[in-house]
Write a protein that binds this DNA or RNA. Sequence first.
DNA 1: GTTTAGTGTTCTCTATACGTGAACACTGTT
DNA 2: AACAGTGTTCACGTATAGAGAACACTAAAC
Lengths: 251, 251
Amino acid sequence: MDNHLSSVKNSCTLLKMFLDSPKEMGVSELSRQLQLSKGAVHKLLATLESEGFIKQNPTNKQYSLGYTLLELGNKVLKDHNLVEFSKQYLQRLSDTTQELTCLCVRDDYEAIYVDRIDSKHPIRFNVDIYRRFPLYATSAARAILAFQEPLFIESILSSGIRTYTAYSMKEPAEVKKRLDIIHANGYEVSENMRNVGVMGIAAPIFDTNGAVNASISMIGPANRVKPSLETMIEHVTTTAREISAQLGYRG
Amino acid sequence: MDNHLSSVKNSCTLLKMFLDSPKEMGVSELSRQLQLSKGAVHKLLATLESEGFIKQNPTNKQYSLGYTLLELGNKVLKDHNLVEFSKQYLQRLSDTTQELTCLCVRDDYEAIYVDRIDSKHPIRFNVDIYRRFPLYATSAARAILAFQEPLFIESILSSGIRTYTAYSMKEPAEVKKRLDIIHANGYEVSENMRNVGVMGIAAPIFDTNGAVNASISMIGPANRVKPSLETMIEHVTTTAREISAQLGYRG
DNA sequence: GTTTAGTGTTCTCTATACGTGAACACTGTT
DNA sequence: AACAGTGTTCACGTATAGAGAACACTAAAC
């Protein structure tokens, strides 16, 4: 890395530190985590505040993220027309299955849910929207990963695997095998992988060039999903095919 | 400004330049707008890209906003508990009026809609969420401005007023007079101010200290709102009062 | 095919703006 | 009253950010 502007890099990591922290943080705490002098952090914060990226609470002097980030985040979503595009299909899938449905996209080496429609059932499962997770971690992500270049898959799996439940896959080879199955079937069904008692069904979305960078998925309690598993899979895969077709994919 | 870290300031304005531009922009265009050398902008972009704040399209080499901004924007919303707090009230107001309802907050010298529930009618009005606008521009904003310090109001109005329609108020004095009325009534009703044929009803939300930094509003076509104007106003004001009470306001 | 005008990228170099570290003014606690 | 924590300010030297030119490439123009 010789193309890094240190102060810019610092402000970026500073902002991202708020993601896994409580709403407000002070200069001292931030300087400790950033391993930067208090004075430097203070200057960083002052600059970011004048630009609306950071807000200072006048009473306790603590800092928090500013509204400008809301504006920018919303612009990202607006520009990402796949979300608008898929919304109606996602809504219909939600109506027919009555379960949580998600739109997932790949961002480099990670996956993000960019849209979600909650289940109508009183007992329902939830996912964090806009949070990153590994490409092998959820059914939605695996439905994307399974259709990437072999070398890419290799590089993802070689860097090690985190397990979430006792039922999670532990070995990269195990994941690779499953990805092959997904590739052959054209969809993924998983149970207990990320959360116990939860089933996920996911299918890839192909763009004009036949590349897969997104997927749709349906997530629900196993006892509710299993009885009608076959029709559920049918609904998910056809929805994904419809979106792919709309994007110009001729498979 | 002697507390400005130039490169940080530059990266902030660079990111904000995307707000009013098409999805993708190139180095040259950005360097022209920023009035910075191409080399410098390129380094800025490279740093921001490595942090996920910017994304480069591999085919046309153009740059766009990155998904990390989505994450950060969502965190802002999550931390802003007024939104979660008010959601049920906003939903109920939407159910009873069947019109677009909004939650508006003040951010320094501007206003932002931070939540919105769309009207169920086929013909409906829309507002941009998370975009800033002046504190005198919409009924929701004026419902906030009317309850600020006189000196603050003065400073807002003295910097000039932008008009949106032929019916918009043109003189600061005119706005000041209306703010006094809002303050006396405890709510605002406007027509044709921002968009012709559109009516807005807004009422302030008071926090524990009696300060107003938010408002709720109902927006709809004049022909649909006017016939039952009195009951509509009643619904909006009582909802605002309920939220204020929940926040600890004892008026 | 060659020219041209645009692009994004890479390079060197120097003024300067960044980050350090210490001192400051507070606050609430011991 | 001493203390330990906070956020803020400042002067100083060195790393570095930004300028500006050269580069590689593309796509249109002749």
